[in-house]
Computed example of a mutant assay.
Amino acid sequence: MQLYARDVGSGTPLVLLHAFPLSSAMWLAQREGLAGRFRVITPDLRGFGGSVLGADEPSIDVMADDVARLFRHLGVQRAVVGGLSMGGYVAMSLCRNHPDLVLGVVLASTRGSADSAAARDVRIAQAERIEREGTIQALVDDLLPNLVGPTTLRQRALVYGRVRGLVQATPPQAAAWAQRAMAARDDAFETLRSLKVPALVMVGDEDVLAGEDEARAMADALPNAELLVIPRSGHLCAVEQPDLFNQAVAEFAAALARTRH
């Protein structure tokens, strides 16, 4: 099972894992803004974009194993790994199961805790509706309005339109599979507490899906972490405020590249 990935630039590898229910297309501004300094690798996670879904049971760990295989396929020994939202869950699983691959980790708009019973029920209900209807209308109705913040809705109509298009392009089977995978994931705080590499935690100040409290809890659990709150941004901070996001990631990755040599 080989993931489709875009691979641009040269230098220290930077692997960016996309949010649900998008694809690596969400990282356009990161490929454009960071490939001058880093080797930017943006895979489509299983079932999304150009990657096939396969027959495995829904699992975040399976998604992380896919990413580890991609490292080997591309000849990448270690990388700065960044994940936003669902991509953050995959990044934390990679830290747990393949720690030797991770030079540093960027966790954006994500959370270390497992779903509450209520949140799990919502995910399973959405997965069932998607499977029943054969469309992702459930996500357009329930999730899309919360993916970006009110500032983006008011001032960045093009950004919202692009996010909407990415959500609408999601294959229904992949969306249902990923919801089940996220619902089944474990708490990651033990992984965070034992992390041996530096971490950068980011959150938008208008994020209603994974807010500042979750980000702060993760930063507090990590032995070596900085926390950055991105202003005028909702859940998709990398898409809503790409310049601020890119600047923070570039500084973090450049510092790691220096300590490596």
Rank of each mutant, 00 (worst) to 15 (best):
G165Q: 10
M1E: 11
A169Q: 11
A79W: 07
R111D: 05
T170S: 14
A55Y: 00
V40L: 07
D141N: 13
G47R: 00
E133M: 13
V90F: 09
D207I: 09
G36R: 10
A157I: 11
E128S: 11
A55H: 02
A184T: 04
M63S: 02
M182I: 12
G11I: 07
L236V: 07
L153K: 13
A114H: 00
G149F: 10
A183P: 05
W27V: 10
Q77D: 15
P145Y: 14
V106G: 03
L3I: 08
G112D: 02
L22F: 13
P171R: 13
L34R: 03
L94V: 00
V122L: 10
L22R: 02
G112E: 03
L101W: 06
V148H: 03
F189V: 05
R180G: 07
R193N: 04
D207Q: 08
L147H: 06
G134A: 12
Q173A: 15
D44A: 11
Q247Y: 07
L3P: 01
R31W: 09
G49N: 06
A108V: 09
G82N: 04
L28G: 14
R132M: 13
F38P: 01
V239T: 14
Q155W: 13
R96F: 01
S116Q: 03
V106I: 14
R78F: 13
V8E: 14
R31V: 15
D207E: 12
R6K: 12
A181Q: 00
V8K: 03
V102L: 12
G87W: 06
W177D: 01
V81D: 03
T259K: 06
T110W: 09
R193T: 09
D213L: 12
E214T: 05
T191Y: 04
A79N: 06
V76F: 00
P172F: 11
G112W: 01
R111M: 14
L236W: 08
E226C: 00
A174F: 06
